[in-house]
Amino acid sequence: MQRVRKGGTSFKLWREQKWLFLMSVPFVLWIFVFNYLPVWGWTMAFQNFRPGRAFGDQEWVGLSHFAELFADERFYLVLRNTLGMSLLGLFVGYTVPIAFALLLNEMRGRVFKRSIQTIAYLPHFVSWVIVAGLVTKMLSVDGIVNELLMLLHLTDEPIQFMAREHWFWGVVTMSDMWKETGWNSIIFLAAIVGIDPELHEAATMDGAGRFRRMWHITLPGIRPTIMVMLILSIGWLTSIGFEKQYLLGNPIVSDYSEVLDLYVLNYGIKVGRYSYGTAIGIFNSVVSIVLLLISNGIFKRMTKESVI
């Protein structure tokens, strides 16, 4: 009896929500294939994977690829580059857009303010291929930057920016800043709009100037937004990708430009060492999940809320 009734309800439910299931479940299967199935590929890291062989015929080697990875000096260099450029990017990618949003908010001329916004968001939509081309052009020996430096007598001969390995992190960070500052400020600008204007009026009555109001009212007012964005991006620290590094780098600076994903590309896919490449990928994923959990934990303790 009961079984029949149960079947009845689920049939009824199916009839009622048939379309909702059809709208979403096929896509869940889709992401299962393209986003979850690759995790099965992690098994490759524990094998001497050979393409074309059946799963049962692969040679299992335990953790030897990881052992090899941790014994490789190059790996630590790459890890240093990844974390170094991530942290620089995190710092500049936070402070500069916040400052930009605060300053933009202080502008009174509407047309000018809107024009600056339009211009500042623009580079976000341009590909890294193009940005790398622009940066290379501007920083070249006969580029505008060198011309200005020489005009101001800051340097006697053109500087080869792209060939100085110690400057590579700086070049990447500045390019990122050029491309994304405007875009990243949008979210902070939106938060600023939500601040109670009475606070500003009260502070003005108390004789606070614009700069002090900005510092004591606007900035604390967007703190929750700042915190959430910070936690989110800490989770993405090791997954900075490699586009910028690949496009801006060259053999001369490779000791400072190679990051984890590039290492996977160069020592995993290109030479067919799939197992080794997978091991690096797993390391990368595990580190970013740990970072995300840690930062979320800190955030929870501070605000009693969770971002994830």
Partner: peptide, 13 residues
């Protein structure tokens, strides 16, 4: 949003 299989497994897929 937070997780990806990584370059090589996706390539193999």
């Amino acid at each position: 949003l937070y997780f990806s299989g990584g370059l090589v497994p996706v390539y193999m897929l």
